[in-house]
């Protein structure tokens, strides 16, 4: 196994472009090292990107948007007061992953690139319109995060490409987000269903909304029909009913050890409904901690 710790993303991309066999980028390592030690994936090339300048930075830009380095851990996000105040749903989604020890290492970019349909932070990122800068042999490009995972364990990144930064939009006024997942336990588990809702109000009326679901399809799914069910409503029972129906209709899950098709399809709507209520309350300025599970 070749181990590299480059000083720049350009160098990292060049190393990856030239590498033979299986290449993995190492940031938190909470997937890569687990897969290595359990003999699932033994990379031929391991490129440590934690030594690159700025990868641990959480930066508030002048326009109110945020730029996050790729090695920022879940714990760092959740200990960052202003970020947590702006995007509580996204931060909570990240906070749900793993134990305290894992929280000290796990990253948003890693969660995204691992390609799991059940990744907790991904529906929250998708709902929040997070974008990613990708550095590769051809230079840089910026894409919506939902375009990166393409199936279980798969991404749209080309050989030599890696994420070099994540961008969270400015929160703006009268807006809130929330993420809820269903697990059979209370923590230390993997989502059977995940639902993220991000919305903005004008008075009591929802004017913008994005709804994303996890663990109900081969990739995290943005559900425009679910957003449409909310837009123009005051989150009345009729709107919630439509939201639930739209979410269930968007599901194409599998039967597996973690849940059945019927269960996931039904509970996706329940999680979305509960997340919408939390996001709505947050948009109205009410302080609400996520109610998980």
């Amino acid at each position: 196994m070749q181990f590299h710790s480059p000083a720049t993303f350009v160098e990292a991309a060049a190393l990856a472009a030239e590498a033979q066999g299986v290449t993995r980028f190492l940031a938190g390592g909470t997937d890569v090292l687990v897969q290595l030690r359990s003999d699932m994936v033994t990379p031929d090339t391991l490129i440590d990107i934690k030594k690159i300048g700025g990868v641990r930075d959480i930066k508030l830009n002048d326009d109110g948007s945020w730029t996050l380095g790729v090695a920022v851990s879940g714990a760092e996000m959740n200990e960052h007061g202003p970020l947590r105040a702006a995007w509580p749903g996204l931060c909570e989604a990240m906070d749900l992953i793993g134990s305290t020890q894992i929280q000290g290492r796990a990253t948003l970019a890693g969660n995204l690139c691992n390609g799991s349909p059940a990744a907790d932070s991904v529906p929250a990122m998708v709902a929040a319109c997070v974008t990613a800068t990708i550095t590769g042999p051809q230079g840089e490009r910026t894409v919506a995060v939902e375009s990166i995972p393409t199936g279980p364990g798969l991404t749209s990144l080309e050989k030599g490409e890696l994420i070099s930064a994540l961008h969270i939009p400015a929160r703006g006024e009268n807006a809130g987000d929330a993420y809820l997942r269903f697990i059979p336990r209370t923590e230390m588990d993997i989502a059977v269903v995940g639902a993220a809702v991000n919305l903005r109000l004008d008075g009591d009326t929802i004017t913008e909304a994005r709804v994303a679901l996890g663990a109900v399809a081969p990739t995290v799914r943005l559900v425009p029909e679910a957003a449409e069910a909310l837009i123009g409503s005051t989150l009345d029972d009729g709107a919630l009913e439509k939201l639930v129906a739209a979410c269930s209709a968007a599901c194409s899950p599998i039967d597996d050890k973690r849940g059945t098709i019927a269960f996931r399809t039904e509970v996706a709507g329940v999680m979305a409904k509960r997340a919408a209520r939390i996001a709505y309350a947050r948009a109205k300025g009410e302080t609400i901690e996520g109610h998980h599970g």
């Binding site: 269903f182 059979p184 059977v192 059945t260 019927a262 269960f263 039904e266």
Partner: peptide, 8 residues
């Protein structure tokens, strides 16, 4: 009595 069984 896992959640899918109870829900069902």
């Amino acid at each position: 009595m896992s959640p899918p069984r109870v829900l069902s």
